[in-house]
Simulated assay, not measured.
Amino acid sequence: MTSRTVVVLPGGQNGPTAPLLMFASDAAEQRGAAVLPVWWDDPGRPPTLTEQERGPWVLPQATKAVAGATGDVLLIGKSFGTYGSVLAAERGLPAVWLTPVLTSEWVVDGLRRSTAPFLLVGGTADPLWDSALARELTPYVFEKPGADHGMYVPGRLAASAAVLGEVATAVEDFLDQVVWR
């Protein structure tokens, strides 16, 4: 039985096995964590929710998943899953937030109230990313110039695949140097 669990909160249009989430989860799993993926109760619902409905819709599902976790818990969330930042703040949980919705008061409030360390990952071509705000919220930021909300960069796909590798390394470093040192 492991003493670490990573709870994976997916984005609004892909499940917890999307590439960014998969590599971040793999980094935790390689460090002895059990992976607890969350599949939204109604996967078609996220795109239909208003900004005011998103946090209250995510929070009970994230809370239920964390209740099933054992040992040291780490949250990993992508975009829509970053509405779980409020839970991280309430429970003092470290987190990796991939392409967080930094335009949402709910998400930013959760990040501001967090006492545990968290890594923010985003790209400068993502309209939901705010470089200055990210650096104000945490010293742990991985930012890719030109990357969009999916962390894709212009040009050939190999360049975007390389970004995925850079994100994986940033997550590994965060886990090794900050969370599980």
Rank of each mutant, 00 (worst) to 15 (best):
M1A: 15
M1T: 11
R4F: 10
T5C: 07
T5Q: 07
T5H: 01
V7R: 05
V7A: 06
V7W: 00
P10S: 10
G11T: 06
G11I: 09
G12L: 07
Q13A: 15
N14T: 15
G15C: 11
P16N: 04
P16Q: 04
T17V: 09
A18C: 10
L20I: 08
M22R: 15
F23Q: 14
D26Q: 02
A28C: 15
Q30V: 09
R31P: 10
A34E: 15
W39Y: 14
D42M: 00
R45M: 15
R45T: 11
P46G: 04
P46L: 12
T50L: 11
E51N: 13
Q52Y: 10
E53K: 09
E53H: 03
P56W: 10
W57C: 08
L59C: 00
P60N: 01
A62L: 00
K64G: 11
A65Y: 02
V66A: 04
A67Y: 05
A67H: 09
A69E: 11
A69Q: 02
T70M: 10
T70Q: 15
T70K: 12
D72V: 00
V73C: 02
L74G: 00
L74N: 03
I76M: 05
G77H: 04
K78M: 11
G81V: 03
T82S: 14
T82V: 04
Y83I: 00
A88P: 07
A88K: 04
A89M: 12
E90D: 14
E90F: 06
L93S: 00
L93M: 02
P94Y: 02
A95D: 01
A95H: 01
A95Q: 01
A95S: 03
V96N: 04
W97Y: 05
W97R: 01
L98W: 05
L98I: 13
T99W: 03
V101F: 05
E105F: 03
W106R: 01
V108W: 04
L111R: 01
L111I: 03
R112Q: 11
R112A: 09
R112D: 03
S114H: 05
T115C: 08
P117T: 06
L119A: 09
L119W: 08
V121H: 08
G123C: 03
T124H: 03
W129L: 02
D130W: 08
D130L: 00
R135W: 06
E136M: 03
P139Q: 01
Y140Q: 12
P145G: 06
G146R: 01
G146Y: 00
A147W: 13
D148H: 09
G150V: 05
M151I: 08
V153H: 00
P154Y: 11
L157E: 14
L157C: 02
A161R: 13
A162Y: 13
G165V: 11
A168V: 13
A170Q: 10
E172W: 04
E172T: 15
D173S: 13
F174C: 03
L175F: 03
W180N: 01
R181N: 15
